[in-house]
């Protein structure tokens, strides 16, 4: 069934139909999540109102890891099976993931100052997250560094796969080493260590960020497919123009 959508023309038709629906779901999820999180959820027993930064910080950090995993997966598919859409989706995912990583780092810094007493420390979690941002930026730079787009895609895909080692390091950094950052609250063996009234807005925004990712992906892939078509047409026109002259 996935082979059906790997055909760019069929994908474009499908994307045009579902895009407005995904947009509506995204706005509804993030809107309701932010309303609940910022206005209609309790303050924390230790951190007070500052805890509300969590509703943006935590979903951004999840998305940073999710996008990188999706990008590395797409790069593997592009390298091994040479699917035309895999390369495009990896390329389209990178800036979205970089954006979420940046958001997680900035909101984390804003949260760290009032709670921990510092904007930044070089502990394992914070450092590995900064490395993730550089991996995204490196992927994007390498992808654009060659005159031949196929070579750029291949080298950057290898970089993305190599960088995937960082993903489990980020996830487990707080368990493997002692860090200033606290361990995971939601995804843990003994169940979430977070009260239901605070978990609800967190999950709403988490799902909302995921559909936001899908929404932006659709826009970017549709753009890339169209741009490829235009390039092919221009090349054909230039070729026929030369033969007539």
């Amino acid at each position: 069934m996935f082979h059906r959508f790997a055909n760019p023309t069929r994908f474009l038709r499908f994307a045009a139909v579902i895009q407005p629906w995904i947009a509506a779901i995204t706005v509804a999820l993030i809107g309701s999540g932010l309303y609940l999180g910022l206005f209609n959820s309790p303050a924390d027993y230790q951190q007070g109102e500052t805890v509300r930064i969590m509703y943006v910080h935590v979903p951004s950090a999840w998305m940073a890891l999710f996008c990188y995993s999706a990008m590395a997966g797409a790069c593997a598919i592009a390298l091994i099976w040479k699917h035309p859409l895999a390369e495009l989706s990896a390329k389209a995912t990178a800036p979205i993931g970089a954006g979420f990583t940046f958001l997680a780092l900035v909101t984390g810094s804003l949260w760290g100052k009032p709670m921990w007493g510092t904007w930044w420390v070089w502990d394992a979690r914070l450092t590995s997250m900064l490395v993730l941002l550089f991996l995204y930026l490196g992927y994007m730079a390498l992808n654009n560094a060659f005159d031949d787009p196929a070579r750029g895609a291949k080298s950057s895909s290898i970089l993305a796969l190599v960088g995937f080692v960082n993903v489990p390091i980020i996830k487990f950094s707080v368990d493997w080493w002692n860090t200033l950052h606290q361990p995971a609250s939601v995804v843990k063996m003994t169940g979430p260590a977070i009260h239901a009234s605070m978990l609800a807005p967190l999950l709403l925004i988490g799902v909302g960020f995921t559909t936001y990712y899908l929404w932006v992906m659709l826009i970017r892939i549709r753009y890339e497919v169209t741009a490829n078509k235009i390039r092919t047409l221009q090349r054909r026109q230039a070729a026929t123009g030369e033969s007539q002259a």
Binding site: P42, A43, Q46, W116, G117, T118, V121, A184, A193, H195
Partner: peptide, 30 residues
């Protein structure tokens, strides 16, 4: 988390950071 130097059994810190755990709940529940 305190950063500093150990001098004859006493740790002289020049920076002190707070570390909190992963539990979040409303004050009433606590």
């Amino acid at each position: 988390v305190a950063e500093g130097r150990l001098n004859a059994g006493v740790f002289t810190a020049d920076e002190v950071l707070a570390k909190h755990d992963e539990t979040y709940m409303p004050p009433e529940v606590a």
